[in-house]
Computed example of a mutant assay.
Amino acid sequence: MTEYYIPGATPAFVRAGQPFTLSGVQYPRKWLALASAGDLTEIGAAAKPAPGTDEVVEQGETGWVVREMTGSEEEALFAVAKAQKLADLAAMRRTVETAGIVRNGAIIATDRESQAMLSGALQLVQDDDQVIIDWKADNGWVQLDAAGVTYIAREVGLHKQAAFSREKVLATAINACTTAQELAAVDITTGWPSNTEEPE
Protein backbone atom coordinates (compact mmCIF):
# COMPACT_ATOMS: atom_id res chain seq x y z
CA MET A 1 0.00 0.00 0.00
CA THR A 2 1.43 3.35 -1.08
CA GLU A 3 2.54 5.73 1.66
CA TYR A 4 2.71 9.51 1.25
CA TYR A 5 4.31 12.50 2.93
CA ILE A 6 1.90 15.45 3.02
CA PRO A 7 3.38 18.71 4.39
CA GLY A 8 1.22 20.20 7.14
CA ALA A 9 -1.06 17.18 7.38
CA THR A 10 -1.88 15.24 10.53
CA PRO A 11 -0.41 12.72 10.40
CA ALA A 12 2.22 13.90 7.93
CA PHE A 13 3.05 10.38 6.75
CA VAL A 14 -0.14 8.70 5.55
CA ARG A 15 -0.87 5.35 3.95
CA ALA A 16 -3.48 5.09 1.21
CA GLY A 17 -6.62 4.01 3.03
CA GLN A 18 -5.83 6.11 6.10
CA PRO A 19 -7.70 9.37 6.94
CA PHE A 20 -5.78 12.59 7.54
CA THR A 21 -6.39 16.26 8.29
CA LEU A 22 -4.95 19.14 6.27
CA SER A 23 -5.69 22.84 6.78
CA GLY A 24 -8.62 21.99 9.00
CA VAL A 25 -10.17 19.68 6.41
CA GLN A 26 -10.75 16.03 7.33
CA TYR A 27 -9.93 13.79 4.38
CA PRO A 28 -11.63 10.34 4.45
CA ARG A 29 -9.61 7.14 4.50
CA LYS A 30 -10.18 6.33 0.81
CA TRP A 31 -9.28 9.78 -0.47
CA LEU A 32 -5.63 9.02 -1.28
CA ALA A 33 -6.50 5.75 -3.01
CA LEU A 34 -9.02 7.51 -5.27
CA ALA A 35 -7.14 10.79 -5.80
CA SER A 36 -5.84 11.77 -9.23
CA ALA A 37 -2.25 12.81 -9.87
CA GLY A 38 -3.49 16.42 -9.95
CA ASP A 39 -5.21 16.04 -6.59
CA LEU A 40 -2.03 14.68 -5.02
CA THR A 41 0.06 17.48 -6.51
CA GLU A 42 -2.38 20.08 -5.22
CA ILE A 43 -1.93 19.02 -1.59
CA GLY A 44 1.81 18.39 -2.02
CA ALA A 45 1.61 14.64 -1.44
CA ALA A 46 4.90 12.86 -2.15
CA ALA A 47 4.78 9.09 -2.54
CA LYS A 48 7.37 7.05 -0.71
CA PRO A 49 10.22 6.48 -3.18
CA ALA A 50 11.38 2.99 -4.08
CA PRO A 51 14.77 2.32 -2.48
CA GLY A 52 17.73 0.92 -4.37
CA THR A 53 19.06 -2.51 -3.53
CA ASP A 54 21.37 -1.10 -0.84
CA GLU A 55 19.19 1.77 0.36
CA VAL A 56 16.63 2.43 3.09
CA VAL A 57 13.78 4.96 2.91
CA GLU A 58 12.86 6.56 6.24
CA GLN A 59 10.54 9.24 7.52
CA GLY A 60 12.38 12.51 8.07
CA GLU A 61 11.29 15.78 9.63
CA THR A 62 10.43 17.33 6.25
CA GLY A 63 9.79 14.31 4.05
CA TRP A 64 11.32 11.07 2.88
CA VAL A 65 14.98 10.40 3.57
CA VAL A 66 16.91 7.92 1.42
CA ARG A 67 20.15 6.58 2.88
CA GLU A 68 22.49 3.67 2.41
CA MET A 69 21.94 0.57 4.48
CA THR A 70 24.27 -0.13 7.34
CA GLY A 71 26.18 -3.38 7.37
CA SER A 72 23.90 -4.85 10.03
CA GLU A 73 20.79 -3.88 8.04
CA GLU A 74 22.18 -5.54 4.92
CA GLU A 75 22.94 -8.68 6.90
CA ALA A 76 19.43 -8.74 8.39
CA LEU A 77 17.80 -8.22 4.99
CA PHE A 78 19.92 -10.96 3.45
CA ALA A 79 19.02 -13.34 6.28
CA VAL A 80 15.32 -12.69 5.66
CA ALA A 81 15.76 -13.28 1.92
CA LYS A 82 17.64 -16.52 2.53
CA ALA A 83 14.99 -17.77 4.98
CA GLN A 84 12.26 -16.96 2.46
CA LYS A 85 14.05 -18.85 -0.30
CA LEU A 86 14.45 -21.87 1.96
CA ALA A 87 10.72 -21.70 2.75
CA ASP A 88 9.91 -21.46 -0.96
CA LEU A 89 12.18 -24.43 -1.56
CA ALA A 90 10.39 -26.53 1.06
CA ALA A 91 7.05 -25.63 -0.54
CA MET A 92 8.39 -26.66 -3.95
CA ARG A 93 9.57 -30.00 -2.55
CA ARG A 94 6.18 -30.66 -0.96
CA THR A 95 4.47 -29.92 -4.27
CA VAL A 96 6.71 -32.29 -6.20
CA GLU A 97 6.62 -34.97 -3.50
CA THR A 98 2.83 -35.08 -3.31
CA ALA A 99 1.84 -34.38 -6.94
CA GLY A 100 1.82 -38.05 -8.00
CA ILE A 101 3.79 -40.28 -10.38
CA VAL A 102 3.02 -42.24 -13.54
CA ARG A 103 3.97 -45.92 -13.63
CA ASN A 104 2.84 -48.39 -16.31
CA GLY A 105 0.20 -45.91 -17.41
CA ALA A 106 -1.35 -45.59 -13.96
CA ILE A 107 -1.35 -42.21 -12.22
CA ILE A 108 -0.37 -42.96 -8.63
CA ALA A 109 -1.19 -40.38 -5.96
CA THR A 110 1.72 -39.55 -3.66
CA ASP A 111 0.07 -37.22 -1.17
CA ARG A 112 0.60 -38.03 2.49
CA GLU A 113 -2.73 -39.84 2.86
CA SER A 114 -2.03 -42.01 -0.20
CA GLN A 115 1.47 -42.77 1.08
CA ALA A 116 -0.07 -44.02 4.33
CA MET A 117 -2.62 -46.13 2.47
CA LEU A 118 0.13 -47.64 0.33
CA SER A 119 2.11 -48.51 3.44
CA GLY A 120 -0.97 -50.33 4.73
CA ALA A 121 -1.37 -52.24 1.46
CA LEU A 122 2.30 -53.19 1.54
CA GLN A 123 1.95 -54.53 5.08
CA LEU A 124 -1.09 -56.52 3.96
CA VAL A 125 0.67 -58.30 1.09
CA GLN A 126 3.72 -58.91 3.25
CA ASP A 127 1.44 -60.76 5.68
CA ASP A 128 -0.32 -62.65 2.87
CA ASP A 129 1.34 -62.66 -0.57
CA GLN A 130 -1.80 -64.18 -2.17
CA VAL A 131 -3.90 -61.08 -1.52
CA ILE A 132 -4.97 -59.05 -4.57
CA ILE A 133 -5.34 -55.33 -3.95
CA ASP A 134 -7.90 -53.26 -5.85
CA TRP A 135 -6.02 -49.97 -6.04
CA LYS A 136 -7.72 -46.80 -7.21
CA ALA A 137 -5.25 -44.82 -9.30
CA ASP A 138 -6.09 -41.26 -10.26
CA ASN A 139 -7.01 -42.44 -13.79
CA GLY A 140 -8.83 -45.67 -12.91
CA TRP A 141 -8.71 -48.96 -11.03
CA VAL A 142 -5.78 -51.38 -11.16
CA GLN A 143 -5.39 -54.77 -9.56
CA LEU A 144 -2.12 -55.32 -7.76
CA ASP A 145 -0.65 -58.55 -6.51
CA ALA A 146 2.12 -58.64 -3.92
CA ALA A 147 4.77 -57.87 -6.54
CA GLY A 148 2.71 -55.00 -7.91
CA VAL A 149 2.14 -53.42 -4.52
CA THR A 150 5.82 -53.80 -3.68
CA TYR A 151 6.79 -52.18 -6.99
CA ILE A 152 4.45 -49.22 -6.54
CA ALA A 153 5.51 -48.72 -2.92
CA ARG A 154 9.15 -48.74 -3.97
CA GLU A 155 8.54 -46.28 -6.81
CA VAL A 156 6.64 -43.90 -4.52
CA GLY A 157 9.40 -44.17 -1.93
CA LEU A 158 12.09 -43.49 -4.54
CA HIS A 159 10.14 -40.51 -5.86
CA LYS A 160 9.72 -39.10 -2.36
CA GLN A 161 13.41 -39.60 -1.58
CA ALA A 162 14.43 -37.99 -4.88
CA ALA A 163 12.36 -34.93 -3.97
CA PHE A 164 14.02 -34.65 -0.55
CA SER A 165 17.46 -35.22 -2.07
CA ARG A 166 16.91 -32.40 -4.53
CA GLU A 167 15.75 -30.14 -1.70
CA LYS A 168 18.92 -31.00 0.24
CA VAL A 169 21.16 -30.09 -2.70
CA LEU A 170 19.41 -26.77 -3.22
CA ALA A 171 19.24 -25.98 0.50
CA THR A 172 22.99 -26.55 0.73
CA ALA A 173 23.50 -24.16 -2.19
CA ILE A 174 21.25 -21.53 -0.60
CA ASN A 175 22.95 -21.75 2.77
CA ALA A 176 26.34 -21.35 1.09
CA CYS A 177 25.34 -18.04 -0.51
CA THR A 178 27.00 -14.94 0.88
CA THR A 179 25.55 -12.31 -1.47
CA ALA A 180 22.14 -11.41 -2.85
CA GLN A 181 23.46 -12.08 -6.36
CA GLU A 182 24.49 -15.62 -5.43
CA LEU A 183 21.13 -16.21 -3.77
CA ALA A 184 19.22 -15.03 -6.84
CA ALA A 185 21.26 -17.37 -9.03
CA VAL A 186 20.04 -20.49 -7.19
CA ASP A 187 17.17 -21.82 -9.32
CA ILE A 188 14.83 -23.85 -7.11
CA THR A 189 12.48 -24.77 -9.97
CA THR A 190 14.69 -27.20 -11.88
CA GLY A 191 16.17 -30.66 -11.37
CA TRP A 192 13.17 -32.22 -9.64
CA PRO A 193 11.88 -35.76 -10.28
CA SER A 194 9.03 -35.86 -12.79
CA ASN A 195 5.40 -36.16 -11.77
CA THR A 196 4.14 -36.88 -15.28
CA GLU A 197 6.73 -38.95 -17.13
CA GLU A 198 7.48 -42.66 -16.91
CA PRO A 199 11.07 -43.43 -15.86
CA GLU A 200 13.35 -44.57 -18.66
Rank of each mutant, 00 (worst) to 15 (best):
L118K: 01
G52K: 13
T150A: 14
L77V: 15
V65K: 07
A50L: 06
I6E: 00
W141V: 14
T2K: 15
A184V: 12
I101L: 14
G105P: 01
L122F: 07
L32Q: 01
A162S: 13
T10N: 15
W64V: 03
E73I: 07
Y151N: 09
A173I: 02
A33C: 02
N104D: 15
A163W: 00
R29K: 13
A33D: 08
A12H: 04
S194N: 06
Y151A: 08
S165T: 07
R154H: 06
G148D: 11
S165P: 04
N104I: 03
N195Y: 12
I188C: 05
V142N: 05
A9T: 08
Q161N: 09
E197H: 02
A173S: 13
V169Y: 10
A81H: 01
I152A: 00
A45R: 00
A162E: 08
K160D: 10
S23V: 04
A50W: 08
A9E: 05
A87S: 13
D111K: 07
E75P: 01
G100L: 02
D111R: 09
A90I: 04
L32F: 06
K48C: 15
P28K: 13
M1Q: 05
L22M: 08
Q26S: 11
L77M: 15
F13R: 01
M117H: 12
T53V: 01
M92G: 02
T41G: 10
V14K: 00
A9Y: 02
R93A: 07
A91S: 13
M117W: 13
Q59W: 02
D54W: 06
V57C: 03
K168T: 09
Q126W: 02
W192T: 03
A91P: 01
S23F: 01
A81P: 00
I43T: 06
S119V: 09
W31A: 04
